[in-house]
């Protein structure tokens, strides 16, 4: 690379040109991280991409054709989106009013925040176990409903709803904390200024805070969506892994570790990445239409 040329101060012209572009030996500090990304992320990624076009039998597109022609496989895209999109949306939308209430300081705020953080550390596996116990037949929730007279409780785990709940439990705190930090980044004097100009509570929120928060909401939605989209253990543990919650991750895993068809597995992984990037791309495109400058807050 051009970096080594820097050691030859004999050519002042070259040194001056490199200085103008900001190239010098300090950039070598970046080298381990770049190597790392290339070796452990880009190389496997392209290896997988190549693998997906090199199936054991058939033409280069055989794996993709196999995926899309089999509705049991291709249906996983829709199943995954049907889980991830509503869950991410609910997590973001529910967080906004709660975070809005919790701006500023009040007694017990830190405790409440910590309580809301706990589920992040539970992880999907414990959440699944808890949901099984809590929402399952004869669990506390069932008994509670029975006690207030609702005997005929619908099944809440080992189906779509079990996975959905686990996505809300792990995803909501995540979305909430992000939005809380975005909200605290908005200078509160902006709302006070709007108040002095005659805006009432609703107008202040809709015309000042929300537009400033919107880019943050888009980012939060993306990150929450990524989390929900890659759902895997809970789809098995509290879902219906053979049917209504057979998500993309599961299909990819089964192709690789149960059928040992690495080409199909890679193809599914690539499709999964593509679908996710499309959703994120659409959201980020919409976000780029918004005002994304300073929000007047500190930091």
């Amino acid at each position: 690379m051009t970096l080594t040329a820097e050691r030859a101060p004999a050519d002042p012209g070259l040194r001056h040109r490199l200085a103008e572009r900001g190239v010098d030996r300090q950039l070598l500090l970046l080298l381990p991280a770049v190597l790392f990304v290339v070796l452990l992320f880009l190389y496997p990624f392209f290896y997988g991409l190549q693998l997906s076009f090199a199936p054991a039998q058939g033409g280069p597109f055989a794996s993709y054709i196999a995926f899309f022609s089999d509705s049991y496989q291709s249906g996983t895209i829709w199943i995954t989106l049907k889980l991830a999109l509503p869950a991410a949306l609910l997590n973001v939308l529910a967080s906004v009013p709660i975070a809005y209430r919790m701006r500023g300081n009040f007694r017990g705020k830190r405790l409440l925040t910590i309580l809301l953080v706990v589920p992040i550390t539970l992880g999907t596996v414990l959440t699944a176990q808890g949901l099984r116990n809590f929402l399952g037949p004869n669990g506390w929730f069932d008994r509670l409903l029975g006690a207030i007279g609702i005997a005929d409780m619908p099944q809440l785990v080992q189906n779509y709803w079990g996975v959905f709940f686990s996505l809300v439990i792990t995803g909501f705190p995540f979305a909430f904390l992000l939005i809380l930090s975005y909200l605290s980044g908005i200078d509160p004097t902006l709302e006070r200024a709007a108040a002095t100009l005659g805006a009432d509570w609703k107008q202040r929120f809709l015309r000042i805070t929300l537009p400033l928060l919107a880019p943050g909401l888009a980012t939060t939605f993306c990150l929450t969506f990524v989390l929900a989209f890659s759902v895997f253990p809970s789809a098995v543990l509290v879902g219906d892994p053979a049917g209504s919650t057979r998500v993309l991750s599961l299909a990819a895993y089964q192709a690789a570790y149960e059928k040992f068809d690495y080409s199909l597995a890679s193809a599914i992984a690539m499709i999964m990445g593509a679908v996710e990037l499309i959703v994120i791309g659409v959201v980020l495109l919409a976000r780029s239409q918004l005002y994304t400058g300073t929000t007047g807050g500190k930091g």
Binding site: P12, R15, H16, R17, A19, E20, D24
Partner: peptide
């Protein structure tokens, strides 16, 4: 900053 050496020159000495 050029005089201090904190910024490399792109011309002169």
């Amino acid at each position: 900053n050029c005089l201090a050496g904190l910024l490399p020159l792109t011309a002169g000495s």
